[in-house]
Amino acid sequence: MGKLDGKVVLLTGASSGLGKQQAIRMAAEGANLAICARTESKLAETAKICEEHGAEVLAMTVDIMDYDALSAFVAATADRFGTIDVLVNNAHTITVPAPFLEKPIEDLDLEMRSSLYAYWHLMKLCFPFLRDRPGAGASIINFASEAAVMGDAFYAPYAASKEAVRGLSRVVAREWGKYNIRVNTLCPNGMTDNISGGIDWMEPATREHIEKSFVNNPFGRAGDPYEDVAPVAVFLASDDSRWITGQNIHADGGGLINA
């Protein structure tokens, strides 16, 4: 038996990176999946792997900054599966890291729309299907970031948007507990294909800063998206996390240790 047998998981940003590895891991744990991303060919690859693990998969090309597209995605998920047990707000468009003085307001707008606003919309759109689920109820997992918690240099728009996500998630956790919905945020450390492929062209100082941030933990290595981060998302999606809500979980190898 898998930890997610019979659950329907709606997960954004599944064409690559952490989203892809979460989708595959959740499929292996018995979930059926509604996944979306902007790149159709990559999304189809993720869907194929998940189906090979036995999952039923709905894959749709969606721009999460488009409300109508989000609404259509949620409606299609409900039509296909009848319900939604888990919402994973994973997708986020990150702008090029640079000092705050060099960051235009357009970068902040883009990052807020691709995370905070999208997460806001999806939580509301999914609510009618998440509410009052029996037993352990439903789960919402909103991705945050240690870079925001720590105030990491070069990440002003990213930090602002991700900390806003944490604040929103705490409020919704308080308000929706009565509907048997738990809401948690997850701060991951995982060296994804997106990150490793995206830093090669950056300025040397920026690239070095980013590379060091991924190994600045007691283990001295970057986390593996499938082996280290995805199992934590599976836990938060599963009934085993039934008594955890309003919390921020660090799947970062101890990159942030405090009381």
Results as ranks from 00 to 15, higher is better:
residue 68 D to V: 11
residue 156 A to E: 02
residue 110 L to S: 11
residue 74 V to K: 06
residue 32 N to H: 14
residue 174 R to I: 05
residue 257 I to N: 13
residue 11 L to P: 02
residue 147 A to R: 06
residue 248 N to K: 09
residue 218 P to F: 12
residue 258 N to Y: 15
residue 91 A to I: 12
residue 19 G to P: 05
residue 233 A to I: 08
residue 248 N to T: 15
residue 9 V to A: 07
residue 133 R to V: 00
residue 73 F to P: 03
residue 70 L to Q: 15
residue 65 M to D: 10
residue 18 L to G: 04
residue 157 P to Q: 08
residue 99 P to G: 06
residue 252 D to F: 06
residue 213 S to Q: 07
residue 220 G to I: 09
residue 185 T to I: 11
residue 233 A to H: 07
residue 255 G to Q: 01
residue 109 D to V: 13
residue 167 G to E: 10
residue 38 R to N: 06
residue 189 N to R: 03
residue 43 L to R: 08
residue 3 K to C: 05
residue 82 G to I: 00
residue 88 V to L: 13
residue 106 E to H: 08
residue 211 E to D: 12
residue 225 P to E: 02
residue 17 G to M: 02
residue 248 N to P: 03
residue 85 D to I: 03
residue 148 A to I: 00
residue 77 T to P: 00
residue 84 I to C: 02
residue 52 E to H: 12
residue 131 R to Y: 00
residue 76 A to W: 09
residue 111 E to P: 08
residue 196 S to P: 03
residue 68 D to N: 14
residue 122 L to S: 03
residue 195 I to N: 02
residue 6 G to E: 03
residue 178 K to G: 13
residue 100 F to E: 12
residue 128 P to G: 04
residue 169 S to I: 11
residue 121 H to W: 15
residue 3 K to Q: 15
residue 72 A to C: 07
residue 40 E to P: 04
residue 248 N to G: 05
residue 169 S to A: 15
residue 213 S to W: 06
residue 218 P to D: 13
residue 253 G to P: 00
residue 255 G to D: 01
residue 123 M to I: 13
residue 16 S to I: 07
residue 118 A to T: 10
residue 80 R to N: 08
residue 107 D to I: 00
residue 54 G to I: 12
residue 44 A to T: 14
residue 111 E to C: 09
residue 202 M to A: 01
residue 121 H to V: 00
